[in-house]
């Protein structure tokens, strides 16, 4: 298997006409683990959505390639088939659609990207077996397969369910948007181990978005980036995380006054909306 690269260059993204990302550069090779940190509202989820192809996130400039595939030309489902996965910060619930039924559709599409619509889904027997095994590994009760997707799931259960999907879809690149938030201390470990298992088996390139060090003790990043005012302002190693834990973002603020103004503006406009 040749390793691919996720290459994001000068990415500008607007939401409802409001510029949020202002030139993001980020390169992740398969097999690498990166962490992305940054204060609330700095644009981390915006980057995730934009890469995954959310229709409300308008790319105004820049490029994003997965290997030699131009992601920005593709619909969200085609990006998934190309090997990109996003574990959502706030997974949506879908009433009446069971986890198992949904995942069988998802797995079929991603593993057989050339299948025509209406053709058979992957075998029920194999699927069930695999699903059960992966649920066991993540310490999930078998009942979840029959429950409606995220409907009434607790915060932690939703995050576990996202990682279950990751484990089933085995992507080339995975973005985990605050997968640790809402998880109890043991669950952070179980879920992290789940991510590591997939990453190891598939050589998945992982981008962990988080506010805290804890998850990074389990999913250890080689590279750490800080997103601030719509740009990645610092690139470093694990030591950056320690610095942030100790000092917060004040030094970033002081070091990047121009980005700090952007952050303040965004915050003001966001609170004006509320």
């Amino acid at each position: 298997m040749s390793t691919k690269t996720l290459r994001i260059e000068n990415l500008h993204v607007s939401v409802e006409g409001k510029p949020i990302l202002r030139g993001v550069n980020l390169t992740i090779n398969q097999g690498e683990t990166h962490a992305l940190m940054g204060p609330n509202g700095s644009g981390k989820s915006t980057l995730s959505y934009a890469l995954m192809g959310h229709p409300n996130y308008e790319i105004t400039d820049g490029t994003a390639y997965l290997g030699d595939v131009n992601l920005l030309e593709l619909e969200a489902d085609e990006r998934a088939k190309a090997g990109l996965f996003l574990a959502f910060q706030y997974p949506t619930s879908i009433p009446g659609v069971t986890m198992a039924n949904f995942l069988r559709h998802a797995v079929t599409n991603v593993r057989m990207p050339d299948r025509k619509e209406g053709e058979d889904l992957i075998s029920m027997r194999d699927f069930r077996k695999e699903l059960k095994q992966k649920m066991d590994e993540l310490g999930m009760d078998g009942d979840f397969a029959r429950r409606y997707l995220n409907e009434g799931f607790s915060g932690g259960e939703k995050k576990r369910a996202e990682v279950l999907q990751l484990a089933m879809l085995q992507p080339a690149f995975a973005i985990l948007d605050e997968t640790d938030s809402g998880l109890d201390i043991d669950a952070v470990r179980v879920v992290s181990e789940g991510v590591n298992r997939v990453a190891k088996a598939q050589g998945t390139g992982v981008l962990v978005i988080t506010h805290y060090q804890r998850i990074l003790n389990y999913i250890q990043p080689q590279f750490v980036h800080i997103l601030y005012g719509g740009r990645i302002v610092e690139n470093g190693g694990p030591e950056l995380v320690t610095t942030l834990e100790r000092e917060g973002y004040d030094w970033i603020r002081a070091k990047y006054p121009q980005e700090a103004r952007v952050e303040d503006e965004l915050e003001a406009s966001a609170s004006a909306v509320v």
């Binding site: 192809g53 489902d77 879809l169």
Partner: peptide, 11 residues
């Protein structure tokens, strides 16, 4: 969007 991000077509 959630479903499409998992590889399901719009229809």
């Amino acid at each position: 969007f959630y479903l499409r991000s998992r590889g399901l077509s719009e229809a």
